[in-house]
Computed example of a mutant assay.
Amino acid sequence: MSIHHQIIALDVMGGDFGPEVVIPAAALALDDMSGKISYIFFGDENRIKPLLGKYKVLEGISEIHHTSGIVTNDEKPSVAIRRKDTSLRLAIEAVKEGRAQSIVSAGNTGALMATAKLVLRCLPGIKRPALASVLPTRQGDTVMLDLGANLVCDAQMLVQFAVLGSVYARVVKGIDTPRVGILNVGSEDMKGPDLVREAASILTNIVFPGDYYGFVEGDDLAEGLVDVVVTDGFTGNIALKVAEGVSKLTSHYMKEAFLSSLPAKMGAVLAGCALKKVKKRMDPRYYNGGMFLGLDGICVKSHGGMDVYGVSRAILVAAHLVEQGYNSEVAHEIALVMNQQSNGIEPEGVIA
Protein backbone atom coordinates (compact mmCIF):
# COMPACT_ATOMS: atom_id res chain seq x y z
CA MET A 1 0.00 0.00 0.00
CA SER A 2 1.48 3.35 -1.04
CA ILE A 3 0.57 6.79 0.30
CA HIS A 4 0.08 9.49 -2.36
CA HIS A 5 0.17 12.52 -0.05
CA GLN A 6 1.55 12.85 3.44
CA ILE A 7 2.27 15.39 6.13
CA ILE A 8 5.66 15.46 7.84
CA ALA A 9 6.09 16.93 11.32
CA LEU A 10 9.43 18.70 11.59
CA ASP A 11 11.11 19.49 14.90
CA VAL A 12 12.50 22.78 13.62
CA MET A 13 14.38 23.64 16.81
CA GLY A 14 16.44 20.43 16.91
CA GLY A 15 20.06 20.12 15.81
CA ASP A 16 23.02 22.47 15.86
CA PHE A 17 21.51 25.04 13.46
CA GLY A 18 17.75 24.90 14.02
CA PRO A 19 15.32 26.63 11.59
CA GLU A 20 18.14 28.13 9.51
CA VAL A 21 18.89 24.62 8.17
CA VAL A 22 15.66 22.67 8.67
CA ILE A 23 13.42 25.02 6.68
CA PRO A 24 15.62 25.25 3.55
CA ALA A 25 16.07 21.48 3.85
CA ALA A 26 12.29 21.07 3.74
CA ALA A 27 12.22 23.17 0.58
CA LEU A 28 15.03 21.14 -0.99
CA ALA A 29 13.27 17.84 -0.26
CA LEU A 30 10.42 18.99 -2.49
CA ASP A 31 12.71 18.58 -5.51
CA ASP A 32 12.09 14.83 -5.17
CA MET A 33 8.64 14.84 -3.56
CA SER A 34 6.85 17.88 -5.00
CA GLY A 35 3.09 17.56 -4.67
CA LYS A 36 3.43 14.55 -2.38
CA ILE A 37 4.33 16.11 0.96
CA SER A 38 3.43 19.05 3.15
CA TYR A 39 4.79 20.14 6.51
CA ILE A 40 3.95 21.13 10.04
CA PHE A 41 6.84 23.11 11.50
CA PHE A 42 7.12 22.84 15.28
CA GLY A 43 9.15 25.58 16.95
CA ASP A 44 9.52 29.28 17.59
CA GLU A 45 7.12 31.06 15.22
CA ASN A 46 9.19 34.27 15.34
CA ARG A 47 12.18 32.42 13.87
CA ILE A 48 10.20 30.24 11.46
CA LYS A 49 8.00 32.84 9.72
CA PRO A 50 10.77 35.02 8.25
CA LEU A 51 12.53 31.96 6.86
CA LEU A 52 9.37 30.51 5.32
CA GLY A 53 8.90 33.76 3.44
CA LYS A 54 12.15 33.12 1.55
CA TYR A 55 10.90 29.88 0.00
CA LYS A 56 7.86 30.26 -2.24
CA VAL A 57 7.82 26.52 -2.84
CA LEU A 58 6.70 26.09 0.79
CA GLU A 59 3.71 28.42 0.41
CA GLY A 60 0.40 26.65 0.81
CA ILE A 61 1.91 23.42 2.10
CA SER A 62 3.26 24.64 5.43
CA GLU A 63 1.70 25.06 8.85
CA ILE A 64 3.44 26.53 11.89
CA HIS A 65 2.78 25.13 15.34
CA HIS A 66 4.37 27.52 17.80
CA THR A 67 6.14 25.90 20.74
CA SER A 68 7.81 27.55 23.69
CA GLY A 69 9.99 24.65 24.81
CA ILE A 70 13.19 23.30 23.30
CA VAL A 71 15.04 20.08 24.12
CA THR A 72 18.73 20.95 24.33
CA ASN A 73 21.45 18.63 23.05
CA ASP A 74 22.71 17.89 26.55
CA GLU A 75 19.30 17.39 28.19
CA LYS A 76 18.79 14.02 29.82
CA PRO A 77 16.10 11.83 28.21
CA SER A 78 14.52 11.27 31.62
CA VAL A 79 13.97 15.04 31.88
CA ALA A 80 12.92 15.56 28.27
CA ILE A 81 10.12 12.99 28.34
CA ARG A 82 8.43 14.85 31.20
CA ARG A 83 8.27 18.11 29.27
CA LYS A 84 5.14 18.34 27.13
CA ASP A 85 5.67 21.79 25.62
CA THR A 86 8.76 21.12 23.49
CA SER A 87 8.95 21.14 19.71
CA LEU A 88 10.20 17.56 19.80
CA ARG A 89 7.38 16.24 21.97
CA LEU A 90 4.60 18.06 20.13
CA ALA A 91 5.92 16.95 16.73
CA ILE A 92 5.83 13.33 17.88
CA GLU A 93 2.34 13.76 19.30
CA ALA A 94 1.18 15.05 15.90
CA VAL A 95 2.01 11.61 14.49
CA LYS A 96 0.24 9.89 17.37
CA GLU A 97 -2.86 12.02 16.77
CA GLY A 98 -2.85 11.39 13.02
CA ARG A 99 -2.15 15.01 12.09
CA ALA A 100 1.13 13.91 10.51
CA GLN A 101 2.42 10.63 9.12
CA SER A 102 6.04 11.01 10.24
CA ILE A 103 8.35 12.99 12.50
CA VAL A 104 11.87 14.14 11.63
CA SER A 105 14.22 15.69 14.16
CA ALA A 106 17.90 16.61 14.25
CA GLY A 107 17.73 17.04 18.01
CA ASN A 108 18.85 15.12 21.07
CA THR A 109 18.99 11.42 20.05
CA GLY A 110 18.30 9.98 23.50
CA ALA A 111 15.38 12.33 24.07
CA LEU A 112 13.92 11.59 20.64
CA MET A 113 14.19 7.84 21.14
CA ALA A 114 12.73 7.90 24.66
CA THR A 115 9.88 10.26 23.80
CA ALA A 116 8.98 8.43 20.59
CA LYS A 117 8.85 5.10 22.43
CA LEU A 118 6.69 6.64 25.15
CA VAL A 119 4.24 8.42 22.85
CA LEU A 120 4.07 6.21 19.76
CA ARG A 121 4.63 2.82 21.37
CA CYS A 122 5.60 -0.24 19.33
CA LEU A 123 3.71 -1.91 16.53
CA PRO A 124 1.73 -4.99 17.66
CA GLY A 125 4.10 -7.90 18.22
CA ILE A 126 7.28 -5.80 18.28
CA LYS A 127 9.19 -6.05 21.59
CA ARG A 128 11.47 -3.04 21.09
CA PRO A 129 12.13 -0.62 18.21
CA ALA A 130 15.52 -0.67 16.52
CA LEU A 131 17.67 2.17 15.22
CA ALA A 132 18.59 1.47 11.60
CA SER A 133 20.61 3.22 8.93
CA VAL A 134 21.78 2.56 5.39
CA LEU A 135 25.53 2.09 4.86
CA PRO A 136 27.55 2.10 1.61
CA THR A 137 29.32 -1.12 0.58
CA ARG A 138 31.23 -2.45 -2.42
CA GLN A 139 28.10 -4.08 -3.82
CA GLY A 140 25.54 -1.40 -3.07
CA ASP A 141 23.82 -0.25 0.10
CA THR A 142 23.18 -2.31 3.22
CA VAL A 143 20.71 -1.55 6.01
CA MET A 144 22.09 -2.27 9.49
CA LEU A 145 20.21 -2.50 12.77
CA ASP A 146 20.25 -2.09 15.75
CA LEU A 147 22.69 0.83 15.99
CA GLY A 148 22.18 1.75 19.63
CA ALA A 149 18.55 1.71 20.70
CA ASN A 150 18.86 -1.60 22.59
CA LEU A 151 22.18 -2.33 24.26
CA VAL A 152 20.95 -5.71 25.49
CA CYS A 153 18.87 -7.97 23.25
CA ASP A 154 17.51 -11.50 23.19
CA ALA A 155 17.13 -13.89 20.25
CA GLN A 156 13.51 -12.92 19.57
CA MET A 157 14.49 -9.27 19.26
CA LEU A 158 17.18 -10.14 16.70
CA VAL A 159 14.61 -12.13 14.73
CA GLN A 160 12.28 -9.14 14.77
CA PHE A 161 15.12 -6.86 13.67
CA ALA A 162 15.63 -9.21 10.72
CA VAL A 163 11.98 -8.72 9.76
CA LEU A 164 12.17 -4.94 10.21
CA GLY A 165 15.30 -4.71 8.05
CA SER A 166 14.00 -7.10 5.40
CA VAL A 167 10.76 -5.20 4.95
CA TYR A 168 12.73 -1.96 4.58
CA ALA A 169 15.01 -3.48 1.94
CA ARG A 170 12.01 -4.86 0.08
CA VAL A 171 9.54 -1.97 0.10
CA VAL A 172 11.95 0.98 0.05
CA LYS A 173 15.02 -0.42 -1.73
CA GLY A 174 13.06 -2.65 -4.08
CA ILE A 175 14.91 -5.90 -3.28
CA ASP A 176 12.44 -8.78 -3.68
CA THR A 177 14.17 -11.20 -1.29
CA PRO A 178 16.79 -9.39 0.81
CA ARG A 179 19.77 -11.39 2.07
CA VAL A 180 19.96 -11.18 5.87
CA GLY A 181 23.06 -11.80 7.96
CA ILE A 182 23.69 -11.72 11.71
CA LEU A 183 26.88 -9.96 12.84
CA ASN A 184 29.09 -12.43 14.72
CA VAL A 185 32.69 -13.16 15.68
CA GLY A 186 32.93 -15.85 13.00
CA SER A 187 30.99 -17.37 10.12
CA GLU A 188 30.87 -20.90 11.56
CA ASP A 189 27.54 -22.09 13.00
CA MET A 190 28.99 -22.97 16.40
CA LYS A 191 30.50 -19.54 17.04
CA GLY A 192 29.02 -16.65 19.00
CA PRO A 193 26.86 -16.26 22.11
CA ASP A 194 23.71 -18.31 22.63
CA LEU A 195 21.33 -15.51 21.66
CA VAL A 196 23.03 -15.08 18.28
CA ARG A 197 23.00 -18.81 17.52
CA GLU A 198 19.40 -19.11 18.68
CA ALA A 199 18.32 -16.24 16.43
CA ALA A 200 20.17 -17.86 13.52
CA SER A 201 18.37 -21.15 14.14
CA ILE A 202 14.97 -19.45 14.20
CA LEU A 203 15.62 -17.53 10.97
CA THR A 204 16.76 -20.76 9.31
CA ASN A 205 13.48 -22.50 10.18
CA ILE A 206 10.86 -19.82 9.55
CA VAL A 207 9.50 -18.04 6.49
CA PHE A 208 10.11 -14.29 6.71
CA PRO A 209 10.53 -11.48 4.15
CA GLY A 210 14.24 -12.14 3.70
CA ASP A 211 16.60 -14.99 2.90
CA TYR A 212 18.82 -15.92 5.83
CA TYR A 213 22.43 -15.86 4.63
CA GLY A 214 24.22 -16.80 7.84
CA PHE A 215 26.75 -15.09 10.08
CA VAL A 216 28.80 -12.13 8.81
CA GLU A 217 31.94 -10.77 10.42
CA GLY A 218 33.07 -7.19 10.93
CA ASP A 219 35.24 -7.15 7.83
CA ASP A 220 32.28 -8.34 5.74
CA LEU A 221 30.27 -5.18 6.41
CA ALA A 222 31.98 -3.17 3.69
CA GLU A 223 31.81 -6.06 1.22
CA GLY A 224 28.05 -5.96 0.90
CA LEU A 225 27.57 -9.71 1.20
CA VAL A 226 24.06 -9.14 2.56
CA ASP A 227 21.35 -6.52 2.20
CA VAL A 228 20.49 -6.49 5.92
CA VAL A 229 22.88 -6.80 8.87
CA VAL A 230 21.31 -7.65 12.23
CA THR A 231 22.99 -7.12 15.58
CA ASP A 232 22.35 -5.84 19.11
CA GLY A 233 22.56 -2.11 19.75
CA PHE A 234 25.80 -2.29 21.74
CA THR A 235 27.73 -4.08 18.99
CA GLY A 236 26.03 -2.16 16.20
CA ASN A 237 26.85 1.24 17.65
CA ILE A 238 30.50 0.32 18.10
CA ALA A 239 30.68 -1.03 14.54
CA LEU A 240 29.10 2.16 13.19
CA LYS A 241 31.47 4.44 15.10
CA VAL A 242 34.49 2.39 13.98
CA ALA A 243 33.33 2.71 10.35
CA GLU A 244 32.89 6.47 10.75
CA GLY A 245 36.33 6.76 12.33
CA VAL A 246 38.02 4.75 9.55
CA SER A 247 36.29 6.92 6.94
CA LYS A 248 37.59 10.10 8.60
CA LEU A 249 41.08 8.63 8.94
CA THR A 250 41.15 7.61 5.26
CA SER A 251 40.05 11.09 4.23
CA HIS A 252 42.75 12.62 6.44
CA TYR A 253 45.49 10.40 4.97
CA MET A 254 44.40 11.18 1.41
CA LYS A 255 44.44 14.94 2.01
CA GLU A 256 47.78 14.70 3.76
CA ALA A 257 49.28 12.70 0.88
CA PHE A 258 47.95 14.96 -1.89
CA LEU A 259 49.23 18.08 -0.12
CA SER A 260 52.64 16.62 0.69
CA SER A 261 54.50 17.90 -2.39
CA LEU A 262 54.09 19.77 -5.66
CA PRO A 263 53.93 16.56 -7.76
CA ALA A 264 51.34 15.20 -5.35
CA LYS A 265 49.25 18.35 -5.74
CA MET A 266 49.46 18.03 -9.52
CA GLY A 267 48.36 14.43 -9.21
CA ALA A 268 45.38 15.54 -7.16
CA VAL A 269 44.36 17.93 -9.94
CA LEU A 270 44.62 15.16 -12.55
CA ALA A 271 42.66 12.78 -10.35
CA GLY A 272 40.06 15.41 -9.49
CA CYS A 273 37.10 13.79 -11.29
CA ALA A 274 37.82 10.38 -9.80
CA LEU A 275 38.21 11.84 -6.31
CA LYS A 276 34.87 13.65 -6.64
CA LYS A 277 33.18 10.35 -7.51
CA VAL A 278 34.67 8.72 -4.42
CA LYS A 279 33.62 11.65 -2.24
CA LYS A 280 30.08 11.52 -3.58
CA ARG A 281 29.82 7.75 -3.07
CA MET A 282 30.92 8.04 0.57
CA ASP A 283 29.20 11.33 1.38
CA PRO A 284 27.72 10.89 4.89
CA ARG A 285 25.08 13.49 4.09
CA TYR A 286 23.56 11.19 1.46
CA TYR A 287 23.11 8.43 4.06
CA ASN A 288 21.79 10.75 6.77
CA GLY A 289 18.62 9.65 8.50
CA GLY A 290 18.55 7.08 11.29
CA MET A 291 15.23 5.21 11.34
CA PHE A 292 13.50 4.05 14.52
CA LEU A 293 11.92 0.96 13.01
CA GLY A 294 9.15 -0.91 14.84
CA LEU A 295 7.36 2.11 16.29
CA ASP A 296 3.66 2.68 15.59
CA GLY A 297 4.57 5.76 13.59
CA ILE A 298 7.49 6.79 11.37
CA CYS A 299 10.31 8.52 13.27
CA VAL A 300 13.60 9.58 11.67
CA LYS A 301 16.66 11.11 13.32
CA SER A 302 18.94 13.45 11.40
CA HIS A 303 22.50 14.02 12.56
CA GLY A 304 22.54 17.30 14.50
CA GLY A 305 25.46 18.80 12.61
CA MET A 306 24.15 18.18 9.10
CA ASP A 307 23.79 20.92 6.51
CA VAL A 308 20.75 21.64 4.35
CA TYR A 309 21.38 18.76 1.94
CA GLY A 310 21.96 16.29 4.77
CA VAL A 311 18.75 17.20 6.60
CA SER A 312 16.80 17.06 3.33
CA ARG A 313 17.98 13.46 2.92
CA ALA A 314 16.59 12.59 6.37
CA ILE A 315 13.25 14.15 5.40
CA LEU A 316 13.21 11.98 2.26
CA VAL A 317 13.95 8.87 4.33
CA ALA A 318 10.78 9.52 6.33
CA ALA A 319 8.79 10.35 3.21
CA HIS A 320 9.79 7.12 1.46
CA LEU A 321 8.93 4.99 4.50
CA VAL A 322 5.45 6.49 4.59
CA GLU A 323 4.99 6.46 0.82
CA GLN A 324 5.72 2.73 0.60
CA GLY A 325 3.49 1.80 3.54
CA TYR A 326 6.38 0.44 5.57
CA ASN A 327 4.55 0.02 8.89
CA SER A 328 1.61 -1.81 7.32
CA GLU A 329 4.01 -4.29 5.74
CA VAL A 330 5.87 -4.79 9.03
CA ALA A 331 2.65 -5.44 10.94
CA HIS A 332 1.65 -8.06 8.37
CA GLU A 333 5.02 -9.83 8.34
CA ILE A 334 5.44 -9.84 12.12
CA ALA A 335 2.00 -11.41 12.48
CA LEU A 336 3.04 -14.19 10.07
CA VAL A 337 6.26 -14.86 11.97
CA MET A 338 4.46 -14.93 15.32
CA ASN A 339 1.91 -17.35 13.91
CA GLN A 340 4.67 -19.72 12.78
CA GLN A 341 6.36 -19.62 16.17
CA SER A 342 3.08 -20.16 18.01
CA ASN A 343 2.57 -23.28 15.89
CA GLY A 344 5.65 -24.90 17.32
CA ILE A 345 8.71 -23.73 15.37
CA GLU A 346 11.58 -23.84 17.84
CA PRO A 347 15.29 -23.14 17.41
CA GLU A 348 17.42 -26.20 16.78
CA GLY A 349 20.94 -27.00 17.82
CA VAL A 350 21.25 -24.41 20.60
CA ILE A 351 22.62 -25.60 23.90
CA ALA A 352 20.79 -23.98 26.80
Rank of each mutant, 00 (worst) to 15 (best):
R138S: 15
C273V: 14
M306L: 15
D194V: 15
K279G: 08
S201C: 02
E329A: 14
V350K: 02
K265W: 09
L120I: 05
S247N: 02
L316F: 04
D232Y: 14
G60C: 05
E188G: 09
T67A: 11
G53I: 04
A264M: 02
T231M: 13
P347T: 06
Y326G: 06
G304L: 11
H303C: 06
D31W: 08
L123M: 03
A106N: 08
G210W: 07
M338L: 14
T115L: 11
S302Y: 07
L131E: 02
Q324R: 15
A29P: 05
L203D: 01
M190W: 12
L164C: 06
G305K: 12
L10T: 00
A243I: 09
S62C: 11
V172D: 08
A100R: 13
M266K: 09
L58E: 03
P50D: 03
E45S: 12
P129N: 12
V171G: 03
G214V: 12
S62I: 02
R47N: 09
K301E: 01
K255H: 11
R83D: 05
P77I: 04
A319H: 06
A199T: 02
G236L: 03
P263V: 04
G14Y: 01
M266Q: 11
G18F: 04
I81D: 07
I202V: 08
G210C: 05
G233S: 14
G224T: 03
G310A: 07
K54A: 04
G267S: 08
N339P: 05
I64D: 06
Q340E: 01
S187W: 10
K127L: 13
N46A: 10
